[in-house]
Design a protein around this nucleic acid. Sequence first.
DNA 1: TATGAATGAGAGTTCATTCAT
DNA 2: AATGAATGAACTCTCATTCAT
Lengths: 213, 213, 213, 213
Amino acid sequence: MQASHSSDKQDAAVSRTFTESARRAQIVAAAIEVIAEVGYGKASFARIARHAGLSSTGMISYHFAGKDDLMREVVAEVLRVAEAYMRPRIEAHSDFPGRLRTHIESNLALLVEYPKHLPALVEVLSNIRGESAGMSEFVGATEEMNRVLAERLREGQRAGAFREFDAEVMVHAMRGAIDEVVGRAAREPDLDVTACGRELAEIFDRATRKTAM
Amino acid sequence: MQASHSSDKQDAAVSRTFTESARRAQIVAAAIEVIAEVGYGKASFARIARHAGLSSTGMISYHFAGKDDLMREVVAEVLRVAEAYMRPRIEAHSDFPGRLRTHIESNLALLVEYPKHLPALVEVLSNIRGESAGMSEFVGATEEMNRVLAERLREGQRAGAFREFDAEVMVHAMRGAIDEVVGRAAREPDLDVTACGRELAEIFDRATRKTAM
Amino acid sequence: MQASHSSDKQDAAVSRTFTESARRAQIVAAAIEVIAEVGYGKASFARIARHAGLSSTGMISYHFAGKDDLMREVVAEVLRVAEAYMRPRIEAHSDFPGRLRTHIESNLALLVEYPKHLPALVEVLSNIRGESAGMSEFVGATEEMNRVLAERLREGQRAGAFREFDAEVMVHAMRGAIDEVVGRAAREPDLDVTACGRELAEIFDRATRKTAM
Amino acid sequence: MQASHSSDKQDAAVSRTFTESARRAQIVAAAIEVIAEVGYGKASFARIARHAGLSSTGMISYHFAGKDDLMREVVAEVLRVAEAYMRPRIEAHSDFPGRLRTHIESNLALLVEYPKHLPALVEVLSNIRGESAGMSEFVGATEEMNRVLAERLREGQRAGAFREFDAEVMVHAMRGAIDEVVGRAAREPDLDVTACGRELAEIFDRATRKTAM
DNA sequence: TATGAATGAGAGTTCATTCAT
DNA sequence: AATGAATGAACTCTCATTCAT
């Protein structure tokens, strides 16, 4: 009873934190495209607003606490899409090597399906420094993903599916190799991304495989 | 003695490109450090000038034709250092797998020795788009390096030292994996870069190795 | 509602060119005064902003696509005023010599009425070279005016109202003579511009008149 | 005796005021060309130095007290050349109308002969305001010339060679008409300047001629 | 919710001029 | 007499953000 007369304003603000308004989603979508196309450095509010069909940058500032906030949402959105796309494909396999290959291949299949999402993610993450508060949060999000992946590799090692190696380094090697394809795809539109995926999968399959005796 | 009545536009700075005054070198060095520390996006002339102990940004414009020119020099300097460092180490080996391992390990040893150079290189190259004329020149320089490396891998394949794989993709996978370590090293000062080098070398040795029969 | 996903470059300022916000008009007015007072070379955004009571030069950049855009608007505004002032006065006459005299006299009457407009016009046009794209457009506008005027002179010749002469040269002679008065008026505030107008009218009346036989 | 041990430095400075060093002449020549080609606004020391084959702008500052000083010398040089070219041609005539015609035609013949001099003069004079001390001096120089020319016209009037008119206005009308041709010639390289001269001469002959009775 | 004008800081660049050599 | 590095101010322009409506 007592709490029920909290102002509408407050409610709206709170709910917005969780429920993305349509405008927010639209702006995030525009941001992803602009970042992918012109790079983080030139992805100004002005450009994003124009791309989204908005008449002013004030609109963006109104819906987001600041540039950090928008970028966090961009990263979150891409991770959400990536998770939804990759997880079922990976989990369709039960063997460790199969999951590893699928991780790589579905990651690059995602690049084919959503050509702007991963480039935007790479742009943002590689241009963000631990400068402002809210930033580290979603840098951590990807580090968390890497840690989870490393843990899976270690499970595979314990299960005898993989040889001994530094899982941390292996994960980052995969990360780097995949991101490089993402970058190349932007510069070379004719690049056969799917073929790159198969090659990378082969590379890391061999890199993790137990040596034949 | 005769006045150069034509071609006013092309500047006398051309010859200066080769003379390399001490100031230019100092500014390039400051630029490398600033870029490595705060990233390409925040590496403004003001910051670089301050870091170099210069009183104004005009000083940089005086010595360089523009930001492009400075960045080109940054890239050239890093490539020069990298070449001088890595080439003799690689050429100390005569076998293909040894050269491959050494390529990776000396690359990361370079990162230990000159902790700012490679981060600066990665920052610049990943933030440059084919925008302003003279840029593509040194984007092409690194592509050339990749092409050369790929050719070496193909030689190894023809010599029977490596299995069959797409040399292009392999090179970029290495590139990406190494650059990822470069990026990590900036964020995690305690990272054992040398160990990462050994691991990566192992990874790509196995990835390229002929399958035991 | 649909976002304009293409043509990011072309700005929304296009429509603003016609809407003519009050601010734009105010800035143009300030620009005209500043240019007339200190000359094109010293008419910086800073000076214009100060004159217009604006807090920053960014304000001008906000309302105009660039210095070119502002200058184009300055020229357009002056031409608009000149047209509105001179045309009815000229068309009040039906004879060719009368129109010629009125062209000159109303042009200088305009200088008396709006003492900054013509000086600003002359400053801008004489300091613009075919440099930056959109400029040539309104340089052409004045050339068009000269061409129209020359055509009228030729009509007069065909109608037997004028002697034979090179209409092109005559028009430019008038142009130059009038602009010279505009320049003098700026340097000599006590100059009797109206009297100058009468004298110029007499000069060009005699210069175009058929020789008495 | 007492005065004879004034320092060499002082002497050199004094003599330089009157005796133009070769360097000064070279710089003035370069300045004239640059101003004519790119306009006063873009005729920076840097551009002039480059055009003159000098390695730095310091050279110009060394030889001239400042930009004003250089510009004054530019004006003086052009006036010197103009005087030497036009005076004998004008004085070859003894009748007032002939001198008037020749004044105009030789002025434009000068433009054909020295295509950069008059454009430079017009550029400088129309972009100089009564700002800094030494400037008004040579603005006055041309005003003096106009005054002299006006006086000649009045002589002609007293001698019955010309009709009654405001000599001041007439002189400036000629000035303006001629300068307009100078300006046009820069924009329209194919313009027949000599023909323009003949037309202008005719125009002002008729404008000053006594009405046939 | 939404708008778009306003702000002020900071960007790269050019400028005329100074000064030690 | 000449050099060219250095200076500091000014330039146009872009940026993220704020605010009154």
